[in-house]
Amino acid sequence: MLNVSGLKVSYGGVLAVSKVDIEVAKGQIVALVGGNGNGKSTTLRAVAGLNQADQGDIVFEGQSLKGLPAHERVGLGLSLVPEGRRLFPRLTVQRNLELGAYTRRDKHEVAETLDRVYGWFPILKERRTQLAGTMSGGEQQMLAIGRGLMARPRLLMLDEPSWGIAPKFVTKVLDTIQHINEQGVSILLVEQNLHKALAIAHHGYVIQTGRIVMQGSGRELLESEDIKKAYLGL
């Protein structure tokens, strides 16, 4: 479904990603994990079209995305839930969700998607008239994911969904991500919480200083002695 090859991205001449090759097969959850400042978010933003790639190619369902602006990538079926959620705090929950469907032309089916999102996140239906900025961090993360799903993506990209939320919500959010995947949505997940991310991933990549240094199934990476020593403190 997604093939990223030889990706190189820099900010103002400073190299952030030097060589990234990753693939996401249809129906998979793929985790891109590693410490802060190693290029995880930069890679995701390059796929979404928010960061310009210096080199390499990004191919989605057989189509190169070179030169394609971000909103057109959304129209192809790529949706990014950004780090920090980036909600509209003074708008209601429902209005935030509706804005997630702004690129869609099938407006008559948006209500159907909204009902599906409310089914995945019942708390959002209960709070649909509440201002987004008054919700807890965990509830806001659910809203951000719901907004991403309103574009009806075939590949949903999630940037640090466990960031800044209470532990009880982390498990709930990751369980919901699994459920969404079971409904046919492929997932590319960026996470600092390596253990929890790899526990739900079909395949995983470890990125370090802008390069992929290890890959394998989620289980293989969790059982790797190198991973245990470097990232899990074991």
Rank of each mutant, 00 (worst) to 15 (best):
W120R: 00
K172Y: 10
G137T: 02
A132L: 08
F169A: 11
V170N: 13
G148R: 00
L124C: 08
T171Y: 07
R128L: 01
F121M: 14
T113Q: 13
R105T: 12
H179F: 12
Q140C: 06
F169Q: 07
T171A: 10
M135S: 01
E160D: 06
Q140M: 00
L174V: 04
H108C: 07
Q178A: 10
A151C: 02
G164S: 11
R152N: 13
E109T: 14
M142Y: 08
I123H: 11
L124F: 01
Y118I: 05
G119F: 07
R104H: 11
E160H: 07
G164A: 12
K107F: 13
Q183H: 15
P153I: 03
T129M: 05
L124Y: 08
A111N: 06
R127G: 01
R128W: 03
A111K: 15
L124S: 00
T103C: 04
T134D: 09
Q178D: 14
E160S: 12
R152T: 13
G137V: 10
M135I: 09
Y102N: 03
A101H: 03
M150Y: 00
S136L: 03
I177M: 11
M157F: 03
E139R: 00
T113R: 05
R104W: 14
R154N: 10
M157G: 04
A144V: 03
T129A: 08
K125M: 03
V170C: 07
D115S: 13
R147G: 03
N181C: 03
L156Q: 02
P167C: 01
L143F: 00
Q183L: 13
N181M: 13
K168Y: 05
T103V: 13
D159E: 05
R105V: 08
G138S: 02
A144C: 07
L174N: 09
F169S: 00
K125C: 05
L131G: 01
F169P: 08
R127P: 02
G119P: 10
L149F: 07
L114I: 12
P122C: 02
G133P: 11
